[in-house]
Amino acid sequence: MNRLLRNRELWLALAILAVLVLVTTRFPRFAQPSNLLTIFNDTSILMMLALGQMAVILTRSIDLSMASNLALTGMIVAMTNAAFPAIPIPLLIAGCVVVGAALGAFNGILVWKLDIPPIVVTLGTLTIFRGLVFVISGGAWVNAAQMSEDFIQLQRGYFLGLPVLSWFAIVVAVLFYLFMTRTQQGRAIYAIGVNPVAAVYTGINVGRTKFLAFVISGAISGLAGYLWISRYVIASVEVASGYELTIIAACVIGGVSIAGGSGTVAGALLGALFLGVVNNALPVIGVSPFWQMAISGAAILLAVVLNARGERRKGRVILKKAEGVA
C-alpha cells in the first residue's frame, strides 16, 4: 500500500483523471471515447518526443535540439516529397529516421569524443539546425498543394479503430519500453545516469552510451518530423519553434529526474498526456488558449516540487561531469 502511494505514475494518472472528471462535470461530451481518442492522437507526437528526451535525460544529459531536428528533417522530407512525389512514403519515413539519427549522432559525437557538455552542444545545434531549415528552403513554405496525397493521408488512415498516427506512438512506446527494460544497452542508459563511476567499473562505455541516447532522440525527432509536417500540412522555418521546452516539460511532469538515472516510460507518456489533456480542456471550458503557457509553466514547477520531495538528491548534476570519470 505504501509503495502504491509513492507510485508517481499513479498520482499522475489520477491528476489526469481529475482534470477529465472536472471538465466532464460541466461538459459531459468531453469524456466521450471519441474525444479521448482525439486527445490521445493529438498528443502522439509529443509522447514519442518525450520518450526520446527521456533517454537523453537519463544519462544526465539534455537535448535542446529536438525541435530544430524535427523542423529540419520535416523540411527535408517535405521538399523531397514535393520534388519526387513517386517515392513511396515508407521509404521517406525510413529516410526521416536516418536523417534524424544522423543529426542526433552529430550531437552525440561531440558529447562522446570531445566531452563538451550536452547543454552547450545542443544549444549550438538548436540554432544551427533551425538555420539550416532556412538555408535549404530559402525561407519558402512547402504547403499542402505541393505534398502528395499519400504523404498527407497516411497518418489519417484508421487501423483497428485507431488513427495510424496513434499507432505510431504505440509502436514506438512499446519498442522503446522493451529496449529500455529488456536490453543491455537500455539498462546501461539507466546505469550511467545513476552512477557513472560504478558504470565504468562494470564495463560500460559511458561516452558511447550517451552517444546512443542522442542517436535515439535524434531518430525519434526525425520520425516526428514527418508526422508533424504531414499532420499540420505545412513545412516552414517556424515549425515546432520553442517546442523543445514542451518536450522537456512533459518529461519533468512525468517524473523523469533531470539529475539522471530515474524515470519510467509510463511516466514520460503520462507527462505528455497531462499536457495534452490540459491543452484540449482549456478551449472546452472557455479559457483563452493564451493561458496554456502559464499553466504548463505552473505544472512544471508543481511537478518538480512534488518530485523533489520524493528524492532528496542534488539535481544540479546535469551541469556537472561525474566526479573522477576520466
Binding site: 547543454i119 533531470i258 512544471i300 518538480v304 516540487v305 539535481g315 546535469i318
Partner: peptide
C-alpha cells in the same frame, strides 16, 4: 530545486 528545471518552468 535544480535551477535548470525551475527556470524552464
Amino acid at each position: 530545486l535544480p535551477s535548470i528545471v525551475v527556470t524552464i518552468g
